[in-house]
């Protein structure tokens, strides 16, 4: 299963990276940056997991910036065509400052 995921992931990265660049620019300063991983989800389907770092102000309004960002990502990336399920997690700058997790840096 993992061997099948890797080739799919490699082919998709340029498109994903381009979409992220665009979205971060559009949503700045609410969105600070986006990181991601390509890996199977819980049921084994290929998936992309986005980690979105939000400003503290954006994070204080749950569901506002996040839903708009997700919608914009769907406009830029046809996840069904990419054959990827897309999952998002969000964190504020302050929360990351405390945790300092490398995967969110």
């Amino acid at each position: 299963m993992l061997e099948l995921i890797a080739p799919i992931g490699a082919a998709r990265r340029p498109q994903i990276n381009a979409a992220i660049t665009e979205v971060v620019k559009e949503f700045s300063p609410d969105v600070v940056h986006i990181r991601y991983d390509l890996k199977p989800d819980w049921s084994g389907d290929p998936a992309v997991y986005f980690r979105v770092l939000l400003s503290d102000e954006a994070s204080s309004k749950p569901g506002v910036v996040s839903r708009k960002l997700e919608k914009r990502m769907e406009e830029l990336l046809d996840f069904l065509w990419l054959e990827l399920f897309a999952y998002y997690n969000f964190r504020s700058v302050s929360e990351q400052a405390v945790l300092q997790e490398k995967s969110w840096a």
């Binding site: 989800d41 819980w42 998936a47 939000l54 994070s59 749950p62 569901g63 996040s66 839903r67 399920f85 999952y87 997690n89 969000f90 964190r91 504020s92 929360e95 945790l99 997790e101």
Partner: peptide
């Protein structure tokens, strides 16, 4: 998928803002 992670992935650290977003 969030539920699977929450229930089984002990390596994952959740933060409140993320959880509240999931709840929305």
């Amino acid at each position: 998928d969030h539920r699977q992670t929450a229930d089984y992935d002990n390596s994952r650290h959740w933060v409140r803002s993320d959880v509240v977003d999931v709840l929305t």
